[in-house]
Design a protein around this nucleic acid. Structure first.
Lengths: 217, 217
DNA sequence: ACCAATACTGGACAGTCGTCAAGTAAATCT
DNA sequence: AGATTTACTTGACGACTGTCCAGTATTGGT
């Protein structure tokens, strides 16, 4: 029923057509996934239904089974799409920072801004990560995103160490766990109404990141 | 319909009777909550139904509305009951440790053991904490438990500092966020099948706790 | 203009959900 | 022992769920 993906290497006219179809197909999938992500971030996994997702899109509920085989397929697709939008966020801070303090404050401010402005999006991430503890269907993709986030944090930590002329004294996993913990708690506070928590988060990052490097002798 | 709680100060015979009834009432509530917690820790919030909870108890599904007004009431009760069993866990380690290294290894080992043996229980905690980001009904009780856990961590950190003759250099919130982050990531690994993660957790705690104190000059 | 393939709608399905109430069993009191 | 309250069961209710499908609108090739 669904259009087949492009098959051969030589691009015949048939292939060109089917590729255009596949592009449109992918485009709509992405569009529906966006509506799904919005719904999920508002209601949470437990209370999100396919009908509600469709209601937040321009289409009826039946279309979801035209573009996705089932609910797991849809949400898996959402998780992957979320990743693409999220992971590269801090690489620019790494790129532009010329000194260690500059990178430090930039990173801290970036995390704080994310907690302030993208709170719903990130509670969705934590919700889905938690779902993967119960439904193994999501585990693989969640692990992939988690790894990407860990790498992102590590790029920051190791670049910070480099700019400061020192060496990291923790593993990537440890660094990620620390900042993830800080961010998560700030997020909880923010969503509970405590806007001041983003300032606390910012300060915490500034205090703790330097301590993840080896001490001066 | 439900027996009233004890009313007055002077304990008449009527009061004694009603208190006995209240005790039995509370006992059964606790019993049902235990079945609910077991179910929740196995299936997660999103897939736990009242019928499944009743199925994991000795009673039929109708009884749940005899002892709880609705689902929120039941789960709120579960959250509170969970707290009582969980929070005091590490205080004994603080009490018996005579030296800083002893407390350090005891704490690290305790966390690792918890991640190994009570994994399902704790993924339930994270699941419910996450639910509270979407359903404000649970927010108050979750915040209370979170505060208790933070205090528990802080007792360990401050006692560790005391035994080591130094001072903590982080806030209670920061310390809690760090160890919560480490624990959560280890828990994810364990539930994904990577048993080695508990060793990593143990090492991480031993590496990081000392760095939460002010450095020697 | 016609036709076939694609895109989408909207209703129906079987199942499950939380909730409730009528009815039975058990315990308690007089 | 009989009467009354408490404890619990069972079946039902309407609402909602994911899934599927027959049918309609839309598109694009010829």
């Amino acid at each position: 029923m669904n259009p087949a993906p492009p098959t051969g290497l030589a691009e015949t006219s048939v292939d060109r057509i089917s590729r255009r179809q596949v592009d449109k197909f992918e485009e709509r999938r992405s569009q529906l996934a966006t509506a799904a992500i919005q719904t999920l971030s508002e209601l949470g996994y437990a209370r999100t239904s396919l009908r509600e997702i469709a209601h937040n899109s321009d289409f009826s509920h039946g279309v979801l089974h035209y573009y996705f085989t089932d609910k797991v397929d849809l949400i898996t697709y959402c998780v992957k799409q979320y990743k693409a939008a999220c992971v590269t966020r801090y690489d620019q801070i790494v790129a532009v920072s010329r000194t260690a303090p500059e990178l430090l404050t930039g990173f801290a401010r970036g995390l704080a801004q994310t907690a302030r402005e993208d709170a719903s999006m990130h509670r969705l991430w934590y919700d889905l990560r938690n779902q993967s503890l119960f439904e193994s269907s999501y585990r693989h993709d969640v692990a992939e995103i988690d790894g990407s986030l860990r790498n992102m944090i590590w790029r920051i930590v190791s670049r910070y160490a480099e700019l400061d002329g020192r060496e990291p004294n923790v593993t990537p996993t440890q660094a990620y766990a620390v900042f993830d913990g800080l961010f998560q708690h700030a997020l909880w506070q923010v969503l509970a109404g405590n806007q001041a928590a983003v300032g606390v988060l910012e300060d915490s990052v500034i205090v703790l990141l330097p301590r993840l490097l080896i001490e001066f002798d």
